[in-house]
């Protein structure tokens, strides 16, 4: 009951009376929120700056089938060291058209990059880390899908990511359990692939599958609740 002082000696441990006592005990300040799940704002990305300046060799489509980028030059001729980190930088964006171009640009470059992707991996880590650190739902979903695509995009990419788990995995550890317990109801985010908990599980499994023999122990170190999908 609010306002009523409770004698601790009368309370039975592990009951609601303890909670009432805790609430009424004004001398004890509430612990501050750690803000682990709080959305962080991002400063303007360099992707946006470059896009507005017209630096990217891409053209905006004004038709109804807006799921493709028209490239003005061949992707094979692009300088991956310059463009791929820039597109990854745009993963933090949530507004159209930046978000669309970043997501689709990364997709096209990974799909058609082949052996040009591997040398650029070290430059991609900071943009990936920034994107995950925003903790925005939409950005998390996009980035996780991109990571899943990245590990299968070329040979040895999965292995090359292992040394960078320390940068990438902490946020995954935070959100690994972000899932909806709806009993036997339907959770539509599963169909739409927007369930962060499931996406993280899939991503970690992809990391383990393609990361070579050191992958599991390194994932386990950063995400202790992760269980192997290959050893059992």
């Amino acid at each position: 009951m609010p306002g009523r002082s409770v004698d601790l000696r009368q309370t039975v441990p592990f009951t609601h009376l303890v909670d009432i006592f805790e609430k009424n005990n004004l001398a004890k300040p509430e612990p501050p929120l750690s803000g682990a799940f709080k959305v962080r704002d991002t400063p303007m990305t360099s992707f946006r700056k470059f896009y507005e300046r017209g630096d990217f060799p891409i053209a905006l489509e004004h038709d109804t089938k807006g799921n493709k980028i028209a490239w003005k030059v061949e992707i094979e001729k692009l300088d991956y060291h310059h463009y791929l980190p820039l597109f990854f930088d745009g993963l933090c964006e949530t507004e159209h058209p930046y978000e669309f171009f970043a997501r689709q640009g990364v997709h096209d470059m990974l799909e058609h990059g082949g052996s040009k992707i591997l040398p650029v991996i070290p430059q991609l880590i900071i943009p990936i880390k920034n994107a995950l650190n925003t903790r925005k739902h939409k950005v998390l979903c996009t980035t996780l899908k991109v990571l899943q695509h990245l590990v299968v995009s070329a040979e040895m990419v999965g292995e090359a990511l292992v040394p960078y788990y320390r940068q990438i995995l902490p946020v995954m550890n935070i959100f690994k359990n972000k899932n909806l317990n709806s009993g036997d109801g339907i959770d539509y985010s599963q169909q739409k692939r927007e369930n962060v908990g499931d996406l993280i599980q899939e991503t970690l499994e992809a990391f383990e599958r393609y990361g070579g023999e050191d992958a599991f122990i390194n994932i386990k170190y950063m995400v202790p609740t992760y269980e192997s999908c290959m050893l059992n």
Partner: peptide
């Protein structure tokens, strides 16, 4: 098909797997 050149000279790149959605 992997890559096509449009009439205006831009390039379209296609995925490894099926792209045509059911409603198209």
């Amino acid at each position: 098909v992997k890559k096509l050149v449009r009439r205006d000279g831009c390039f379209y790149y296609y995925n490894k797997t099926r792209e045509c959605p059911d409603k198209q």
